[in-house]
Amino acid sequence: MNDKTKKEFIWIVAVLVVLIGSAIGNVIYISMHSQNFAQNVNAHPTYPSNADIVHVEGTQWSWTFVYSNGTTTTNVLNVTVGKPVVLVVTSIKGAEQFAVIHDLSIPKLAIQVYAIPGQNNSLSFTPTVIGSFYFECVEYCGLDHYEMRGYLNVVA
């Protein structure tokens, strides 16, 4: 092995070590936190049994939240700190022609789930900090896409 080949070998091995290490860390995280990722189910065995189930309906151009006690809010999501929440997200037809694809993103809590017509995507999370966090539709959905946003209020 000459000097040049040795250097090539070193950089390929270094790249492999870094990337495979990262990939393994990622796989471990996913397997331990699978309830935090959007899945095409209404409920999942890993969801906490005491969770508040909130049905989320994306429409052109607002978010509607239907709570388990029957109340409804638009563009505001109210949850209790420390209590697990399950979001069941779908897309319904509004004033426009069809139901289209939306994407509910709450960046400060690293929560993101697509709202797809005819499909229920769900995930679970537990808010740990009291406060108000913005959310927004991040899948382009027509004229007033940018107004499809609001606040997640975590209260005591």
Binding site: E96, Q97, F98, A99, V100, C141, G142, L143, D144
Partner: peptide, 10 residues
């Protein structure tokens, strides 16, 4: 579903 909405708002 959006690209099939042939309106200026779709």
């Amino acid at each position: 579903p959006l690209s099939l909405e042939l309106t200026q708002s779709g």
